[in-house]
Deep mutational scan, measured.
Amino acid sequence: MAAGGDHGSPDSYRSPLASRYASPEMCFVFSDRYKFRTWRQLWLWLAEAEQTLGLPITDEQIQEMKSNLENIDFKMAAEEEKRLRHDVMAHVHTFGHCCPKAAGIIHLGATSCYVGDNTDLIILRNALDLLLPKLARVISRLADFAKERASLPTLGFTHFQPAQLTTVGKRCCLWIQDLCMDLQNLKRVRDDLRFRGVKGTTGTQASFLQLFEGDDHKVEQLDKMVTEKAGFKRAFIITGQTYTRKVDIEVLSVLASLGASVHKICTDIRLLANLKEMEEPFEKQQIGSSAMPYKRNPMRSERCCSLARHLMTLVMDPLQTASVQWFERTLDDSANRRICLAEAFLTADTILNTLQNISEGLVVYPKVIERRIRQELPFMATENIIMAMVKAGGSRQDCHEKIRVLSQQAASVVKQEGGDNDLIERIQVDAYFSPIHSQLDHLLDPSSFTGRASQQVQRFLEEEVYPLLKPYESVMKVKAELCL
């Protein structure tokens, strides 16, 4: 049975990233139509530049190519590739079939990587351009969430054990800070992308030097003109047959890092959902379990974690691919890159769409948070109580021993009897502590235990987050809708 299948058929496997999760716009960027249309555009740009620099290419040939950029006979191309065992030459023939007058000058002087690699770089750039505003929107939604809850005390956790208090907004800023680093890295790697350009079979530009009869300047002009037509500021000066596969490492490393950030955020949300302090959106008709109707599973956060793990592992592909590119190139890269580049971007696209949807509907339960604080705060307040007693004339050592005994009794009630923490009640009825009984409410005010959390939130948002989001103001209103 021949390899390949009808990918629109229910009898043929289709990647869930495309069929179930990723956005239509990201799927289109990695589609065959987008790819092969870009090949034709690159052939047109090459012909236009070659004509401008004096090669015998007519206006009629150029116009014929322009008129057929979208006229792609995919069936013919597939048949040609089956016959020739070469995808680029299959599309040269297919393009030439609908451009008979231009057929002889299509791909003039070029090698397969002229269309293959340059198209990949265009796709990487455009895919990054799709991700950047999506990530900015996630940051914006979380920034709104953090600002609104900047002063809401909550129990902090280290080692997932109760620690000092923080605020809900401050905790959210930990998430935002990681995503801001990801946004900066995505922008950097996007701006650092260079075009492969017009380089020939081993990167020496020998074929173009021959076409222009040894004119170095025209060869350099050709490279520059096509690079500018493709919208790049610069091209690699040095290439082998391909652009260095280190570029793929750079791009997928940034995406993998984004995956790590999203995994951490969504894990926190899942843990908070278990504590009943916070939940992701839950639709009115949504079913959490087929057997347990009360369940409210954090399905979206779980999906993000599941896909983020996949995204983090994909960076190993370009690392290994770059390491086995012998001399000017081997074909070890080809099949692998067809999979890992598309999957990385479709996965990143999915987790950003999902995280935006989550961040637009996060639900906080202040009463649950308050109750958990009441359970733990008495123990945390013991040092403040000791200091207040010393100020009232008591002995630190005597007070410490009193607190120690009462704390152990209260802990026994919590752990052995399943009761509430009654340390404060014990202190309130103990005559030894009568000098500070009137101060206990103040000493137990949760806001006095959150330090500068709310001020940190305000400063972080104003100095770091809002300036970073400013270039994306025009796209901030787009909502994230999930079908599944």
Results as ranks from 00 to 15, higher is better:
residue 56 P to H: 15
residue 276 K to I: 05
residue 467 P to T: 12
residue 43 W to Q: 07
residue 376 E to L: 02
residue 241 Q to T: 01
residue 318 P to C: 08
residue 227 T to H: 13
residue 275 L to K: 03
residue 317 D to W: 01
residue 130 L to R: 09
residue 141 R to F: 12
residue 13 Y to S: 08
residue 187 K to R: 14
residue 434 S to G: 12
residue 244 T to R: 00
residue 334 S to N: 14
residue 133 P to T: 13
residue 117 D to V: 01
residue 423 L to A: 04
residue 77 A to Y: 15
residue 235 A to T: 13
residue 284 K to T: 13
residue 150 A to S: 10
residue 211 L to R: 04
residue 360 E to M: 06
residue 285 Q to P: 10
residue 238 I to V: 11
residue 74 F to W: 09
residue 85 R to C: 10
residue 160 F to V: 03
residue 377 L to W: 03
residue 327 F to C: 10
residue 447 S to D: 11
residue 97 H to G: 11
residue 377 L to S: 02
residue 293 P to G: 08
residue 338 R to W: 01
residue 7 H to R: 12
residue 127 A to I: 02
residue 105 I to C: 14
residue 75 K to L: 09
residue 90 A to D: 00
residue 420 D to H: 11
residue 114 Y to T: 07
residue 336 N to Y: 02
residue 254 V to G: 10
residue 201 T to F: 02
residue 53 L to E: 05
residue 188 R to Q: 07
residue 171 R to S: 00
residue 167 T to C: 01
residue 236 F to A: 09
residue 35 K to H: 13
residue 358 I to Q: 07
residue 432 Y to S: 10
residue 233 K to S: 10
residue 229 K to E: 05
residue 199 K to Y: 01
residue 375 Q to R: 04
residue 227 T to C: 13
residue 116 G to T: 15
residue 125 R to V: 09
residue 112 S to P: 02
residue 365 Y to T: 07
residue 472 Y to T: 13
residue 377 L to M: 02
residue 13 Y to W: 14
residue 235 A to R: 08
residue 403 I to N: 06
residue 446 P to W: 02
residue 376 E to S: 01
residue 374 R to D: 06
residue 313 T to H: 07
residue 66 K to P: 06
residue 212 F to N: 05
residue 43 W to K: 00
residue 292 M to K: 03
residue 367 K to D: 04
residue 169 G to A: 03
residue 93 H to D: 13
residue 238 I to E: 04
residue 269 I to N: 03
residue 451 G to S: 03
residue 39 W to A: 11
residue 341 L to E: 09
residue 29 V to R: 07
residue 411 A to S: 08
residue 67 S to I: 15
residue 426 R to Q: 09
residue 58 T to G: 07
residue 249 I to Y: 07
residue 349 D to V: 06
residue 238 I to D: 00
residue 315 V to Y: 09
residue 357 N to W: 04
residue 231 G to P: 04
residue 365 Y to M: 08
residue 341 L to P: 06
residue 247 V to Q: 13
residue 347 T to E: 08
residue 22 A to N: 15
residue 119 T to M: 07
residue 146 A to E: 01
residue 427 I to T: 06
residue 35 K to I: 10
residue 291 A to E: 02
residue 237 I to H: 09
residue 398 D to Q: 15
residue 229 K to P: 03
residue 420 D to V: 04
residue 164 Q to E: 00
residue 303 R to V: 03
residue 340 C to D: 05
residue 403 I to G: 05
residue 279 E to M: 06
residue 45 W to I: 15
residue 327 F to N: 06
residue 192 D to H: 09
residue 471 P to Q: 15
residue 326 W to C: 05
residue 312 M to V: 07
residue 479 K to S: 14
residue 125 R to M: 11
residue 284 K to A: 09
residue 121 L to E: 08
residue 176 I to N: 07
residue 428 Q to M: 11
residue 187 K to Q: 12
residue 173 C to T: 09
residue 147 K to S: 11
residue 253 S to R: 05
residue 34 Y to D: 07
residue 32 D to M: 10
residue 31 S to V: 03
residue 286 Q to Y: 00
residue 400 H to Y: 04
residue 207 S to W: 05
residue 440 L to R: 04
residue 340 C to L: 11
residue 68 N to I: 06
residue 286 Q to W: 01
residue 250 E to H: 07
residue 318 P to M: 05
residue 222 L to W: 01
residue 116 G to S: 14
residue 349 D to K: 03
residue 337 R to Y: 03
residue 299 M to F: 06
residue 222 L to Y: 04
residue 373 I to L: 14
residue 160 F to G: 07
residue 49 A to Q: 03
residue 162 P to S: 08
residue 393 G to S: 06
residue 356 Q to K: 03
residue 152 L to W: 07
residue 94 T to A: 14
residue 245 R to H: 00
residue 105 I to A: 13
residue 234 R to Y: 13
residue 406 L to N: 06
residue 7 H to P: 12
residue 225 M to A: 10
residue 264 K to G: 04
residue 106 I to N: 03
residue 331 L to T: 02
residue 242 T to P: 10
residue 177 Q to K: 04
residue 139 I to R: 02
residue 248 D to L: 04
residue 382 T to P: 01
residue 302 E to N: 00
residue 130 L to D: 05
residue 400 H to T: 02
residue 417 E to V: 06
residue 107 H to C: 04
residue 124 L to S: 09
residue 243 Y to N: 08
residue 301 S to N: 03
residue 381 A to Q: 11
residue 109 G to V: 00
residue 386 I to D: 01
residue 484 L to Q: 15
residue 96 G to A: 10
residue 192 D to E: 12
residue 249 I to S: 06
residue 75 K to E: 10
residue 59 D to M: 08
residue 463 E to P: 03
residue 24 P to I: 15
residue 82 K to H: 10
residue 106 I to T: 08
residue 467 P to N: 11
residue 440 L to P: 06
residue 452 R to Q: 08
residue 50 E to N: 05
residue 271 L to D: 02
residue 421 N to H: 10
residue 166 T to P: 06
residue 131 L to Q: 14
residue 156 G to C: 06
residue 161 Q to E: 05
residue 257 S to Q: 08
residue 209 L to F: 11
residue 266 C to T: 14
residue 15 S to N: 14
residue 437 H to Q: 10
residue 413 V to P: 03
residue 278 M to E: 02
residue 218 K to Y: 15
residue 418 G to Q: 02
residue 33 R to M: 12
residue 121 L to I: 11
residue 174 L to D: 09
residue 203 G to F: 05
residue 366 P to Q: 11
residue 50 E to T: 09
residue 235 A to Y: 13
residue 242 T to G: 05
residue 353 N to S: 12
residue 310 H to A: 07
residue 477 K to C: 11
residue 348 A to W: 02
residue 67 S to D: 09
residue 389 M to T: 06
residue 89 M to T: 02
residue 66 K to A: 11
residue 261 S to Q: 03
residue 179 L to T: 12
residue 70 E to D: 13
